[in-house]
Design a protein around this nucleic acid. Structure first.
Length: 1126
RNA sequence: GGGCGAUUAGCUCAGGUGGUUAGAGCGCAUCCCUGAUAAGGAUGAGGUCCCAGGUUCGAGUCCUGGAUCGCCCA
């Protein structure tokens, strides 16, 4: 960072900070699993160390630093020069370094110990892949609220967590090892395989932690929970055993979505993630009815059955029809086909000939020839409720092994559930023509065979969305197999009840997406026939089949037959080798399954603290969470598993507030994906724009749950608009405060009540913004909070600083200068506090330079400071008036533009036409307006006289409700009023009466809105309740003043070209045309003052040796400028 | 097929409880400033508020239906 040209800048100190950088290579936030709790004294020591590190000084150096910083004026300046905003990322890295050295995060948490806890749960990511931009999104939202509440005095523990188990990890290892599928894993060895999984979990941990730190996500990674840790697994066992002992766990043969590649069933929320649009062959198959049904159908006929899964046809056991529905016999060439009468048109065409109609009941029991005569079965028509006439033919082929409805129908009708498909999804020898083929691949061969036998009426490709494995994309099969279930349906109503009190953001998730999902809750299938997961703690007895659930390792040791290794790795295959003594005396073996990983993550509220093994109060102040936050897709994932486990185990929702986040899309609104190559890597954004800009964009771009159209450009724009504006304002203050006759915090300044309107307005806006930001953040709405801050910073920069600039260097009124400094300093200091949860880097940088370095008693970091409270400086009338002044200025500029009168040319007066009340409010602000518009005088016209034209409009807001349908007539009556006369009556406090549809209506001042505008002779612009007119005549005097202004501008340019410092005094010599010299004579004193000339001479011959000389033109007349340092 | 959400300027987005002339940033055009200067600012052009009905004195806002897009589910 380059030091600007500022006298008295404490350069030496900045260098010292830099010099210390690598002395203490602390790695806050790196995995140190063995760290023990610290003795209490260390907190205080750490705080002291933090102070030293943040001030950038060992204590003994302070005095020397002060001496070094002594400016020309002999005062102590502790200001650090502010570099250009373009050095943003290096600024962030220096702040990061200070945090590390000062252990600021830990200090910020521990200094609030004993205060009201604010509980945050980290939803654990899996660290076996690189973190992407969407992870930055969730991590910064997880950061902002804990920071906010910490500053508000809450004790906010933030324990990081990592999801370690599950298929994603296994898949990664399979890829690594070049193997695929369960047989190969088992051949490789479960112990070795799981060891690889364990190692793979942490593969990208470094990168995750590096990114986490760099984006300023404060979370304690040193004592992160990991779902594979022994303690964690033990807590999960406790929960599963508890549920088992409550009778909420059962095993059942159910048709489940099953991934043949992964060899495991998937839970409904996993299935939910894998729907894809695919085109499958769909066929209309003929099931010829047997001779015994000729009486019903009136001759030979076939059932017409529609299926999109031809591969299930070999397992056909029955054909189901809808009870109470009429079926039709339709002639199709030389064949007769049976289908639901309602569907004949859709299937066969509108002109199909219906030969006969048969009630469903008459058709029931009819026998037919199965599509493949490979597997024995009943092959009869059965009635079943689930059959509809929405699509297909109204006749459904039943393969009980492959469908939930099929299985239910099979149970009702006592059918078998033969399954000719093995666990890998391959046909067994029961289906010779497709033996060894994957079922989906066998469709073609099966259809060909059916066609050869004349069984296919028609084939058409069918596009539909079909579930696929969310990890490996294999199409799922619905498959009957034994699985372990948790009876969540028992607590469904309770979950709904608890959900109703959760603060969802956006709130429609509560009753919409999530609520409706809960209403349709089904029991949770928690078993997975896999390897790397929490082993189900269930042991089944060889003799009595009873299941024993083990809820702790102590329990396991007690009941184990033989020795249990110490330490125990509670994973497969080690726990598989341990047998347990059953109550009946028999030997029990562990069931082979592991738990759904969603059960792991849903257990984190208690498992991260090793509940209940750490004592009776191990969850005190840690359950439930005040706040969790994840992407919207977690409604059926983590949000559900948390709620289900919380309800089942504690009868409480584990979270009080949820913030849902949207998808990150690319700049064109496309999903980011590696294959499209449109992924924006987080490091690209950070290296280019910095973490603050990244964060600010994510917080303020739009509602968090909307999709983000994300690109480097939008972050950059955000940065320019907000962060650079803030930085420039901050740099402005520091630059002038650090001047020799500048200012320091604590210097005496007039009390607020005695400061100018401008100051009081800025502080009023500040108070209003404090209120707003606080309220919005408390309601989990960083977007509105951030926008309020943007408005404030914009007002400060583009109105306050813009109009107050010269107060900061003019020394003719020291009290006013001090007031300006004090006001801007207060604003920026408070903004650094308000911005701290959003953009922690710039906030801390500002705080350090604005507060900490001047006040040894202040917190050394903004993140150790308290959240600001408004200071009763709100003045809404002043804010209204200032808004009107801004409006008047805008209108005046517009009028100037229209009249082609440049701002540098002074004009005699501006006339503001407005209602009297506005004029009264604006009165104190005319100086500002006059200066902005460069007019000598600002005058108000409110009377309806020669200068002003008034028009009246009805106030719909007051008159509308009163008049109702008579409102149009009222509008006409108002239009018919004489505006001038009416306004005179109203201004005298009177009322006017108009007749509307025969009724007299009394109108007061509030009922009529005035529009006033100056008439004749002015350049006018109007808008809202104001109109501004400018006197357009340029007198010779004004012309001279305009020339003088031009001269000053030219001299300032010359100063710059001569490389002078802003505060350098000069000797100045001017020469030019007679008109120019006239202007100089008329404004000599003013010009000299403006350009800091101690000496001003005019004419031929420069009386000193010029340092710099410039010839130019003003208004097409020559001018020569010579100057040197005084 | 069902649920939820979205649709406002060329682009990205704001627009409590219905109320006078619908806003901002970017981009564009025309300029200004030169003591925030490797910055800053102004003015202007640009909108059938997705469509069609309805409620109302009055609809971007409320209701009904539809279209398109996204997410989720069958």
């Amino acid at each position: 960072m380059q030091a600007p040209r500022v006298v008295g800048a404490p350069r030496g100190r900045a260098h010292r900070v830099r010099g210390r950088r690598h002395q203490r290579p602390l790695r806050v936030g790196h995995g140190r699993p063995g760290v023990r709790p610290r003795p209490p004294g260390r907190v205080a020591r750490r705080a002291r160390r933090a102070v030293r590190a943040l001030r950038g000084l060992p204590p003994g150096d302070r005095a020397r630093a002060r001496v070094a910083a002594r400016g020309a004026g002999g005062r102590v300046s502790r200001w650090k020069p502010v570099g250009p905003a373009s050095d943003w990322t290096s600024m962030e890295e220096r702040v990061l370094q200070r945090w590390r050295e000062g252990d600021v995060f830990r200090t910020s948490v521990e200094m609030r110990k004993g205060h009201d806890p604010y509980v945050f749960y980290e939803g654990p990511p899996t660290a076996n892949g690189r973190p992407g931009s969407h992870h930055v999104l969730s991590r910064v939202f997880k950061d902002i609220f804990p920071r906010f509440h910490t500053m508000r005095g809450r004790y906010v523990e933030r324990k990081a967590g990592w999801d370690c188990h599950g298929l994603p990890v296994e898949l990664e290892v399979e890829k690594q090892l070049g193997i695929s599928g369960k047989p190969e894993i088992e051949a490789y060895g479960i112990a070795e395989f799981n060891a690889k999984c364990r190692a793979s979990v942490g593969e990208y941990l470094d990168e995750w932690e590096r990114l986490t730190e760099r984006i300023g996500f404060w979370v304690d990674t040193s004592e992160a929970y990991r779902t594979m840790d022994t303690d964690y697994v033990e807590s999960v066992w406790w929960s599963l055993a508890t549920l088992h002992d409550k009778g909420l766990v059962y095993e059942s043969d159910k048709v489940v979505p099953y991934c043949p590649r992964c060899g495991t069933a998937l839970s409904s929320h996993e299935v939910a993630q894998g729907y894809k649009d695919v085109t499958d062959p769909s066929i209309y198959v003929k099931f010829p009815l047997r001779a015994d049904s000729v009486a019903v159908t009136g001759g030979e006929a076939s059932l017409l059955v529609w299926t999109t899964t031809p591969w299930t046809l070999p397992a056909n056991q029955a054909a189901a029809i809808s009870p109470g529905t009429d079926y039709a016999v339709v002639v199709d060439g030389d064949e007769r086909l049976v289908m639901a009468q309602a569907l004949v048109g859709a299937v066969m065409g509108e002109d199909a000939a219906v030969e006969r109609v048969i009630p469903a009941a008459d058709l029931a029991g009819a026998g037919y020839d199965p599509p493949f005569d490979l597997i024995p079965g009943r092959h009869q028509v059965v009635l079943s409720d689930f059959v509809t006439t929405d699509d297909g033919t109204g006749i459904v082929h039943i393969a009980p092994a492959f469908g939930e409805d099929d299985m239910r129908a099979a149970r009702e009708h006592g059918l078998d559930a033969p399954n000719p498909v093995d666990r890998q999804g391959l046909f067994t020898s029961k289906v010779p023509l497709a033996e060894g083929q994957f079922v989906k691949d066998a469709d073609r061969a099966l259809i060909t065979d059916l066609e050869a036998r004349g069984r296919v009426q028609r084939e058409k490709p069918y596009e539909h969305s079909y579930p696929h494995c969310w990890r490996c994309s294999t199409p799922l099969l619905y498959y009957a197999k034994p699985s372990w279930y948790i009876r969540t349906t028992d607590v469904r109503d309770r979950m709904l009840e608890l959900n109703a009190s959760v603060g969802w953001h956006p709130d429609h998730v509560r009753d919409g997406r999530f609520g409706r999902w809960l209403e349709g809750n089904v029991d949770w299938a928690i078993s997975r026939e896999r390897y790397w997961g929490t082993p189900l703690p269930f042991w089944r007895c060889d003799d009595c089949s009873e299941v024993t659930a083990i809820g702790s390792f102590a329990d396991l040791r007690e009941r184990a037959i033989g020795d249990v290794p110490d330490p125990l790795d509670p994973h497969r295959p080690y726990v598989d080798d341990i047998d347990v003594r059953c109550h009946c005396g028999g030997v029990a073996h562990r069931v082979p399954e592991v738990a759904d990983v969603w059960f792991d993550s849903g257990a984190m509220p208690f498992a991260q603290h090793h509940h209940p093994f750490e004592g009776p109060d191990d969850l005190a102040g840690r359950f439930p969470a005040d706040f969790v936050c994840e992407a919207l897709d977690q409604t059926r994932g983590w949000f559900y598993s948390l709620l289900a486990e919380g309800t089942l185990l504690f009868d409480e929702s584990p979270y009080r507030n949820v913030v849902c986040l949207g998808l990150i899309l690319d700049g064109d609104g496309q999903k980011m994906s590696k294959s499209k190559g449109n992924v924006v890597e987080p490091w690209t954004v950070i290296d280019h724009a910095g973490a603050d800009a990244f964060r600010w964009y994510l917080f303020t771009a739009q509602s968090p749950w909307e999709s983000f159209r994300f690109s480097l450009d939008v972050v950059d724009e955000t940065r320019r608009r907000f962060l650079f504006t803030l930085w420039n304002t901050y740099a402005f203050l520091v630059t002038y405060a650090a001047l020799p006759d500048g200012w320091s915090p604590g210097d005496p300044a007039p009390p607020v009540a005695e400061r100018s309107e401008m100051d009081r307005w800025a502080l009023s806006r500040l108070d209003g913004t404090i209120e707003q930001v606080t309220a919005r953040l408390a309601e989990y709405d960083p977007t509105s909070a951030g926008r309020a801050l943007e408005d404030l910073v914009d007002d400060l920069s583009n109105w306050y600083v813009r109009t107050s600039r010269r107060r900061f260097w003019r020394s003719d009124d020291p009290a006013d200068t001090a007031a300006a400094f004090a006001t801007l300093h207060e604003c920026l200091t408070t903004i650094s506090l308000l911005v701290a949860p959003f953009c922690p880097f710039v906030a801390d940088e500002m705080w350090g330079n604005l507060v900490a370095s001047h006040d040894d008693t202040a917190p050394p970091s903004v993140h150790l400071a308290d959240w600001p409270a408004p200071g009763a400086r709100r003045d809404e009338q002043l804010e209204r008036a200032m808004a009107a002044a801004m409006e008047a200025t805008t209108l005046g500029r517009s009028a100037r533009k229209e009249a082609k009168l440049k701002v540098r040319q002074p004009l005699a007066e501006a006339v503001i036409a407005c209602p009297p009340s506005t004029a009264r409010e604006l009165e104190g602000l005319t100086g500002i307006v006059a200066e902005e518009l460069n007019v000598r005088d600002v005058r108000f016209v409110t009377d309806a006289g020669g200068l002003v034209q008034v028009s009246l409009k009805p106030n719909y807001r007051t008159l509308g409700p009163r008049m109702g349908p008579n409102m149009p007539a009222m509008a006409d009556a108002v239009a018919a009023l004489d505006p001038t006369a009416t306004v005179q009556v109203l201004d005298a406090g009177g009322t006017v009466t108009v007749s509307v549809n025969g009724n007299d209506e009394v109108l007061g001042d509030d009922d009529l809105l005035r529009e006033v505008r100056p008439s004749e002779g002015y350049a006018v612009a109007e808008g809202g309740a104001l109109a501004v007119g400018l006197a357009t005549e340029i007198t010779p005097e004004l012309e001279m003043e305009g020339l003088a202004r031009d001269l000053v501008r030219a001299i300032q340019n010359a100063r710059r070209d001569a490389d002078l410092k802003v505060e350098d005094r000069i000797r100045l010599h001017l020469d030019g045309s007679a008109r120019i010299r006239e202007a100089i004579d008329a404004h000599r004193g003013w010009i000299a003052g403006e350009v800091l000339a101690t000496e001003l001479t005019v004419g031929h011959g420069v009386p000193f040796t010029p340092l710099h000389r410039e010839d130019g033109e003003i208004d097409a007349e020559p001018v020569a400028i010579s100057l040197s340092r005084a």
